[in-house]
Design a protein around this nucleic acid. Sequence first.
DNA 1: CCTATTTGACCGGG
DNA 2: CCCGGTCAAATAGG
Length: 280
Amino acid sequence: MEYISSSNKNIWIGELIKGRDSTKKLQNLLPRKIYNDGVLANDLVVKILGSFSNTLSTLSSLGPGELSPVISPCCNDRALDSDEIEKKPKDRRGCYKRRKTEDSRIKIVDTIEDEFAWRKYGQKEILNAKFPRCYFRCTHKSEGCKALKQVQQLEDGSEKFHVTYLGYHTCQNIHKDTQMFSDTSALKFYLNFKDPNINYSSPSSHSTITNANITHSSEREDDSNAQSDAHHLATSNDDKQSIALWKDIIGNLESPHEDIFKNGISVDDFKFDENVFLHI
DNA sequence: CCTATTTGACCGGG
DNA sequence: CCCGGTCAAATAGG
């Protein structure tokens, strides 16, 4: 297996960013509601974006020499001596990489419900915040889907929630069909939020949000996720421009920079998340 | 049995 | 070392 060098890595990242940005432009060019064999064109674009984003975030977090199969130290079943008590907590050092904060979409909504199925994996008290922050990951993580979601209730008494989406869904069957909560109180009970009537000392809640798109949507949940409303921006469908973008994207994938693959890495070494180009 | 949630421990960036 | 993000054992519930 080939090792990654820092120069190679930058080339890879550059190519991926070009592909991702072209895909975003293409998404804005796509007319709404293009179906082919029941597949919505924008859904495909979203999946492509997801693959770009996930690959970029994975690649960005890798250091030199980490391209080959990543084996975390904690996952090595080092031989446990018999005198090593089983209750000893595991050494989890190096177990997880923190994800870059890029590609986050922030929304202010009045329900944490959206069309995706999420599984809660954590909750934290945040310093100087009245309400805890809840952490969710996609239910289909086992399929390799890296989408995450963070939820925190606003402190302005508006009963709204600050939701941050991180990463994109790459899973199949991403749309869930049922509503989990019928009303806000059940939802708040579920989230285990503190009683908003109690006075907690909370300094000026500054809202400096960087590196993210902010969307205020007070109406319904149907645009609570960037993946479903991104094509709102679609205005023109300039076919020539569209074709050029496709060529740009596919070209990036099929004939990558010579330097990338000259060291014995072949395209066969890559396994794409989905066969997104089959229908195109 | 299985899957989902809870919750304190753990990790790592700043 | 602090704080926020994640892990994973214990627990809940179908």
